[in-house]
Amino acid sequence: MKVFVAGANGQIGRHIMKLLKDSDDYTGIAMVRSKEQAEAFSEKGMEAVLADLEGSVDELAEAMKGCDAVVFTAGSGGHTGADKTLLIDLDGAVKTVEAAELANVNRFIMVSAFQANNRENWNEKIKHYYAAKHYADKALLQSGLTYTIVRPGGLVNEPGTGKVSAGEKTERDIIPREDVAKAVVACLKEEHTHNKSFDLVSGDTPIEEALKRI
């Protein structure tokens, strides 16, 4: 299975690309913005394509042509303004959904944010970010794609445990980025996650088992 990863050069994205490379079942295609980034992936034995989330839908569709699934884990980052959040986390995500439809890539996994679906639980300090995630997710929900929306809790760089809690959560908690990546890759083969959205935090249940319970 060829998996197009938007946001491959981000912290979760790099974990996802490594997991795909180490698997016999997948080929990861890293979507990057610069030749330097593409060369960095190539040096590690990974495929990369040049594309820009601020570019056109047609360009994104061309970049993902021939892939079997799309993972969107891109973000403008915490150091940019609300304008970049709208352009990347919202419009970039929506364009990626539109591109997947155009390129006939039916499987789409979105990395969202904890409780982005529930306005009452948005973080007041970064409400614009949650609004972007909320409406990007809604665009995916309203598409004709076979979707999975993963809404991780507070992201940390601790080593993953391989154990999570998945479902509709109300209490905020943390989760290692490595475990988010593992869950995303596990969703690729777990049909029970098709057309499902769920929060994801650290827990006591092995990832594969947790995904079967959502």
Rank of each mutant, 00 (worst) to 15 (best):
S42R: 00
E158K: 14
A181C: 08
A103G: 10
V164K: 14
N9S: 15
R119C: 02
V94H: 06
S34F: 01
V156D: 11
R151H: 10
Q11E: 12
N104K: 14
E124D: 09
D91R: 04
A166N: 11
E43Y: 01
V5W: 10
I174L: 04
V111W: 06
M46V: 08
V164N: 14
T27L: 11
M17N: 04
F108W: 10
V180A: 06
A6Y: 14
I126G: 04
Q142D: 15
M1D: 06
G162R: 15
D179F: 11
V105Q: 06
P176W: 11
S42C: 00
A74I: 10
V180K: 04
K127T: 14
I175V: 03
A183W: 03
T161N: 12
E36A: 15
D179G: 09
N9G: 05
V94Y: 08
L19W: 12
Q37W: 01
D199P: 01
D173W: 08
E209P: 00
G92M: 14
K84N: 14
I207P: 05
S202I: 02
I109E: 05
G162D: 15
Q37S: 12
G10R: 05
K127H: 05
G77S: 10
E158V: 07
G154A: 12
A131N: 08
L87P: 04
G81Y: 06
K95T: 05
T85E: 14
K127G: 09
A131S: 09
V184P: 04
Q37N: 07
R151S: 05
H134A: 13
E208K: 13
A69V: 02
D68R: 13
Q11L: 08
A61H: 02
I88S: 01
E191S: 12
E54D: 11
A93R: 05
Y26K: 07
K189F: 07
G167M: 13
T146L: 13
V5Q: 14
R177P: 07
A132C: 13
D22M: 02
V156K: 13
K35C: 02
N9C: 07
A8E: 01
R107H: 08
A61Q: 02
Y129D: 11
P176N: 11
G81V: 12
E120R: 12
E191Q: 12
E168I: 15
H194N: 15
G167V: 09
M31T: 03
E124I: 09
S112W: 09
S23N: 00
K44L: 15
T85Q: 12
G45T: 06
T193P: 10
T80G: 03
E168T: 14
L87H: 13
L87K: 15
H194V: 08
E178G: 03
V184H: 07
I207N: 02
T73I: 09
M46C: 12
K182D: 04
